[in-house]
Simulated scan of single mutants.
Amino acid sequence: MLPHANITKLVPGLYEAQLAADKAADDAAVAAGLDPLLVELVKMRASQLNGCAFCLRMHARDAMERGESADRLAVVAAWWESQYFSPQEQAALALAEQVTRIGDLHTGAAPAVDIEAALDEKKVAAVIAVAIAINTWNRIAIASHYPVAP
């Protein structure tokens, strides 16, 4: 277990820089025309892989506020085994997993998804930016031991 150190308070410059990076990623998603629900799914999937309860709760709530269904949220962790997600969503989720598991990229089999057929270059870049931003937030929240209580 990581020792307790609230990075948000103790390294405020990093927190401020992450807010700016997150805004840039969200702006790229809007400019690329990504559906806001797809962006929330990417954030949720990365947070699932990283085990970040704080971000999972936040983005599940955000997704539901944007109209996401409980059924789809329930199967995001096994998206490739369902018929709930469009080819574009599958491509974004596969890409988010590749970015999140970048260190394990060559050790695990990725679902067979033709990312480039489903997402143009701007969308690929935007999904990668969102995945990088949420992975950083996951690390800040987990390392800082952000509380997650009912």
Rank of each mutant, 00 (worst) to 15 (best):
L105M: 12
P3R: 04
M58P: 06
S82V: 09
A129P: 01
I140D: 09
D35N: 06
Q83C: 12
A96H: 02
N135P: 09
A109H: 13
A29E: 03
I142R: 06
E97L: 01
V130P: 07
R139V: 05
E68G: 04
E121T: 08
R45W: 11
V11D: 09
I128K: 13
L2K: 12
A46H: 13
H59F: 00
R72P: 01
D114F: 01
A20T: 11
D27R: 07
V11C: 08
A63E: 02
A141W: 02
T8Q: 08
L95P: 05
G51Y: 12
K122D: 10
L105W: 12
A21G: 14
R45V: 08
K122M: 14
A129E: 04
A129Y: 03
H59K: 04
L19Y: 15
A117D: 14
A46F: 14
A131R: 02
M44T: 15
A92M: 07
P3C: 00
A149R: 14
L10D: 13
A60I: 09
A60C: 11
Q83R: 08
E121Y: 04
E116R: 15
P111K: 04
K9S: 12
V30A: 11
A28Q: 02
L38F: 12
S47W: 07
V99P: 03
D22Q: 06
T107E: 06
T107K: 13
N6H: 10
R66C: 09
L37D: 07
D26R: 14
L49R: 06
R101T: 11
V99L: 03
L2T: 13
L14G: 04
A32P: 15
A28F: 05
K123I: 04
K43T: 15
T8C: 04
R57Q: 10
F85A: 05
A149K: 10
A78R: 09
S144Y: 01
A32S: 11
I140L: 06
K43Y: 13
A20K: 00
I102N: 13
V124Y: 10
E89P: 08
A21I: 14
A126C: 04
R139G: 11
A74R: 05
N6C: 00
L41D: 11
V75A: 08
A131M: 02
K9H: 13
H106V: 08
A53P: 09
K9Y: 13
A109W: 15
V148D: 04
D26G: 14
L95T: 00
L37N: 08
H145N: 06
L37T: 05
L41G: 12
I102K: 03
T107S: 08
A133Q: 00
S69V: 05
E16I: 10
D62L: 15
V127K: 03
R101Y: 12
E16F: 07
A141N: 04
A32W: 14
V42F: 15
